[in-house]
Design a protein around this nucleic acid. Structure first.
Lengths: 205, 205
DNA sequence: ACAACAATGTTGACATTGACTACTCTCGGG
DNA sequence: CCCGAGAGTAGTCAATGTCAACATTGTTGT
């Protein structure tokens, strides 16, 4: 409750961070088109032009938001995979990866939409890099599986891409309302199972 | 080149259709955030408030655009599948389906983005229905395959959903610049092949 | 034929927004 | 100590979506 006598210091201190926080709240609450720079400034209690010192552009703010999203997503994915104790249990790890992605994407629907829709424009390499780092993990999983002979050969990145795309598509459909949230778990299960069946070496003997 | 003396009739005649056309051109040329109702009105040569008679809302215009997109996509998919003469050649038909989707989605990147991002809000069932009709075709394919014993059992809709999601994800990644267009074909191939391998009956003998 | 009436366009207005410029304030290093 | 750069402020502008009041046209019942 900001008292009228309370005088806030002229310099906010860490406006940039707080802008990002407020932006994410607004994103979650009202969706992306209602996210307004002036609104954020009002929420925080600074002048309407203050954000400009930290983000040249509305787009720049959104890009930063997307980048931070990818970083956090990457961390969540990594954590989920490593939570499976048995390093050799590829199915479990794959499943954990996919589940973690779906959870993140549904819990942060609007943010995920932003992340996937922000093309990396010339110069905005940061977003692309963060994205690559997040999904690159799955290539490693594939590679390990191939090394142990559990998976058929083939370009690990290509196969990883396909898996990633599947999970991406599932959440995209869920977030756009084409499928009900209740079906998500089953769908992920089907997708992972299906993939593993298709990727197993030809003649198990 | 509208002559100043040329008097256009007070009533445009089919403004709604022309608005949709202009909107799609603008979408393709400048992306979705730069699509402005006033701009469209200017392009067509009508007053800035005229569009309101046909679309209550900017969002309504976009929804109509998305719906029309789904209808056309559905037609393209159907045509692509039926172009494969042999009705029993499931792999070919699946591949045709996926390829057609990818082509449409890359040729109409912005429109596809719009189509996938527009949640069906309460009352806007038209978009959802058009979408369902478009992707529903794949369930039929699966069902036929299962009936002929070429595919393992399982809920056809669920499996169709997974395939659709994969293709959706691939194009989404392509359109957001995460993967280069040149890799698209290979990726689709990998995805379809992988799926078919995973879906084949357990013991081929 | 013609008078209502609905549909479609037009004009003018308003609040909101992103962006720009010119200005102040504050703090830390020479 | 001072002074310059970083950070915030106030004011302005053009553009936009939305709305209301009005004008014009097409249609329909009698």
């Amino acid at each position: 409750m900001p008292d009228s006598t309370e005088q806030r210091p002229y310099h906010h201190g860490n406006l940039r961070t707080e802008l990002l926080n407020a932006a994410e709240r607004s994103l979650r609450a009202h969706g992306i088109d209602k996210l307004s720079l002036r609104d954020l400034a009002r929420d925080i209690g600074v002048s309407h032009a203050a954000p400009r010192r930290h983000f040249a552009d509305r787009r720049a703010l959104l890009d930063a938001l997307a980048e931070s999203g990818f970083v956090r997503l990457g961390a969540r994915l990594r954590a989920a995979v490593e939570e499976i104790e048995d390093e050799e249990d590829l199915p479990a790890r794959l499943h954990a990866f996919a589940s973690a992605y779906v959870r993140f994407a549904t819990e942060n629907a609007a943010l995920t939409g932003l992340m996937n829709s922000s093309k990396h424009r010339p110069g905005a390499t940061a977003v692309a890099e963060a994205a690559a780092a997040a999904f690159g993990q799955i290539s490693d999983l594939i590679e390990e599986g191939q090394a142990r002979g559990e998976l058929e050969g083939g370009d690990p990145e290509e196969i990883g891409l396909v898996i990633y795309a599947t999970v991406l598509g599932i959440t995209s459909m869920a977030n756009s309302g084409m499928i009900e949230p209740g079906r998500l778990e089953g769908l992920v299960d089907t997708a992972v199972t299906q993939f593993l069946r298709g990727a197993r070496p030809a003649e198990p003997r």
